[in-house]
Structures are given as C-alpha cells and as structure tokens.
Design a protein around this nucleic acid. Structure first.
Lengths: 119, 119
DNA sequence: CAGAATCCTCAGTGATACTG
DNA sequence: CAGTATCACTGAGGATTCTG
C-alpha cells in the first residue's frame, strides 16, 4: 500500500511526515502526550474522528514504534495506549504545532471580531 | 471543496494543519524559508512533486496568506514566491519538523547498517 | 469495551498535453 | 517560463453493522 510519504526519497520534513503525516496522527499523539489513554477515552477526546480511523491510525503508529499498546486480560476488555521513548522524541514537534495553532486561532478569532458588524 | 482540516472545529494541532496540512506544503515552505524562489526553481527542488501539484498547493498557501506571489511582466514570464510575514511565523514549526526528520533519517540509516549482513 | 468486517465515496493526486 | 486544461484513478477516509 505504497505509503504517501517515504523517508528514503523525500526531504527531511517528509521524513517527519512519514511518521506523523496521517489525518489523525498528530491529534492522537497530542492526546497521548498528556497521558496514557484507553481507546474509549481517545475516541471521546476526538469526536470528529470515527472509531475506525482512530484504530487504523493507532495501528500505523504502533507499527512505526511511536506508541505502545497495552492489553489487559479483563472483562470487559481494557486497552491502553502510550507513547514509546521514540514517540516522546516527537514532543517538540507536536508542542510547537500546538502552540502555533493556538496563536493562529486567536488571530483568526480577533479578525472575526474586527470585521463584525457594529451591533 | 470542504477542506480536510477546519481550525474552527478542530484542536490546536488541527488548526496548524489547516494551514500546512497539504501533501507538499511543508516541503514548499521549507524551500521558501531559505529564499524567495521562482516557480521553476521550486519544481527543480521538488522532483517528486508534479508541476500541477506544486501549483495547486501554492495557490492554497497564497489564499491563506502564507506566501506572496510576485509576477514580473517580462518575456519569458517570471514568477517568484516568498513567505509573507505571517508565513515566516511558521518557521519554528517547519524547522523543528526538519530537525526531527533529519535525526529520524540518521536513526533509520544506522539501523540499516546494524542489520546489514557482514560482507 | 475495543475493536473487526463491509461497503462505498469522493477529494486528493497524478499523467499528459496544450498555451500566452 | 509558468502555468492551464482534461482525464483518470486509487486509496484515504467515512458510515454502518457485527462480535469476543
């Protein structure tokens, strides 16, 4: 299934994207940055993503050694996900993205206010 | 064309991705981070991307106010692209991605060496 | 609860050729 | 040189249902 990004042929940014470049991967990783989470919690934290998508992205992240999957032999079943050491190395990347996004939102919102009709 | 990412509904990372989340956008931006470039130079720097894709991604970046397009009334035509002030604010994001990608590549390559058959 | 299995769609992407 | 214009595809992503 020829991956979208290939770290061999691409530039350095593309190498990064070969790991975090999935629709929901950055979001998942930001969540796991805060704490280890179970599947259900993850889903509740990402209401815009479908269960299926979250599962798929988790599998890829696991295959890339970014996250680890803990299965507890209980009933009802419990599965938790956490960042690996390698995954934690992504922290600077993720937090700078989050920071910038926050500033961007603020900017956009203040723009909206400026353009708002005087009521 | 309902965009993939929406900064209104998504988390902070998603807000960032609403701007840089295109297949070739980070690559283009990294190039423009170094210097203002003309279209042809950009294409030569990104041999894996098609001309069409580069054009499209440039248009979106321009629409988002990330880059500026300079058209020179010459023959043959000359068009240059450069980051706007706003675009330059992405520098921390892009460089940390590049840094991480570089380290990642090194890691991968040394793994490959370790697994290489003794010749 | 944490998924697996199916089915389906379309938007992102590509290949190619043409042009002011 | 710096793009459009077409045509075509495929696979990422979604909706829904089923299950150990």
């Amino acid at each position: 299934m020829a991956r979208k990004y290939d770290w061999r042929t691409g530039s350095n940014v593309e190498a990064t994207l070969s790991v975090i470049g999935g629709r929901w991967k950055p979001v998942i990783l930001c969540n796991l940055l805060v704490s280890r989470l179970r599947f259900g919690e993850l889903c509740r934290n990402m209401p815009n993503a479908t269960q299926r998508m979250i599962t798929l992205q988790l599998r890829e992240l696991e295959a890339d050694g970014v996250i680890r999957r803990h299965v507890y032999a209980e009933v009802p079943p419990r599965v938790e996900y956490e960042l690996t050491e390698f995954g934690r190395s992504l922290e600077p990347v993720l937090s700078v993205m989050r920071e910038w996004g926050m500033a961007f939102k603020k900017r956009k919102l203040s723009e909206a206010v400026d353009n708002a009709p005087a009521s």
